[in-house]
């Protein structure tokens, strides 16, 4: 998989710094898992992170900290070695970082119908909102803008909007100024992983009324 659309450098940088809201960080992690170009950028941003960390002033630790750590080391040595994590199966279409939580297959999730042609699966996160959307062929989302950051990664199928065409592996990292109306553009369902850190802004009245019910 060689994605054509990537998260913005600002998102990769904040991801590397550990400063992206949880939900957005998950989308970046899923993309980075399949994109060498972004792995490179993240590694560079982490390098910048360590440089800035080293530049930082030093804060003295309490007097007993050094002795404490030595006794902690002793305790570790006496305890059992940790079991290595079990390897992940290579089959499946759920992004690697989500597999321990969701399993391997997108089709085995319990999708909930949200609107005609649109089904969703909500993934709880600590900061921001994260969901999977399954959009039937020929369906378009109501036109909307964003009051915050939105990251969308296509997992299956493709969609097009005012910004471009997005296929599996691609990430749309939209500026909040952009109002768009994504629509699936092939004969198969389009499944996306979408993270937002603020509610969407719909222009139509009906979607605005329904918004609270679907946690959009």
């Amino acid at each position: 998989m060689k994605p054509h659309h990537h998260p913005d450098a600002s998102s990769l940088m904040s991801y590397a710094a550990g400063s992206l809201p949880d939900a957005l960080a998950t989308v970046v992690a899923c993309h980075v898992a399949v994109c060498e170009q972004c792995q490179q950028a993240v590694a560079e941003a982490e390098q910048l992170g360590h440089f800035l960390m080293e530049q930082q002033q030093q804060t003295e630790l309490s007097a007993h900290a050094r002795n404490d750590i030595i006794s902690m080391l002793d305790a570790v040595e006496q305890s059992e070695p940790e079991q290595p994590a079990s390897p992940v199966h290579d089959e499946g279409d759920i992004p690697l970082p989500l597999r321990p939580y969701l399993g391997d297959k997108l089709d085995s999730l319990h999708w909930k119908t949200m609107a005609p042609g649109i089904r969703q699966f909500i993934i709880p996160t600590t900061k921001g909102r994260l969901r999977l959307l399954k959009i039937a062929p020929g369906t378009s989302m109501p036109i909307h803008g964003h009051s915050g950051s939105e990251l969308t990664m296509v997992l299956r199928g493709s969609y097009g909007d005012e910004v471009g065409r997005f296929q599996a592996g691609d990430v749309a990292d939209l500026d909040p100024e952009i109002y768009h109306q994504p629509a699936t553009d092939t004969h198969e369902d389009c499944i996306c992983l979408i993270a937002t850190d603020a509610p969407l802004k719909f222009t139509g009245l009906v979607p605005r009324i329904l918004q609270p019910f679907f946690q959009l």
């Binding site: 992690a29 980075v32 792995q39 993240v42 590694a43 970082p97 993934i123």
Partner: peptide
């Protein structure tokens, strides 16, 4: 609220 997603797996 937490889902056990590791956002920083080994590259």
């Amino acid at each position: 609220l937490m889902s056990p997603i590791d956002n920083y797996p080994e590259p």
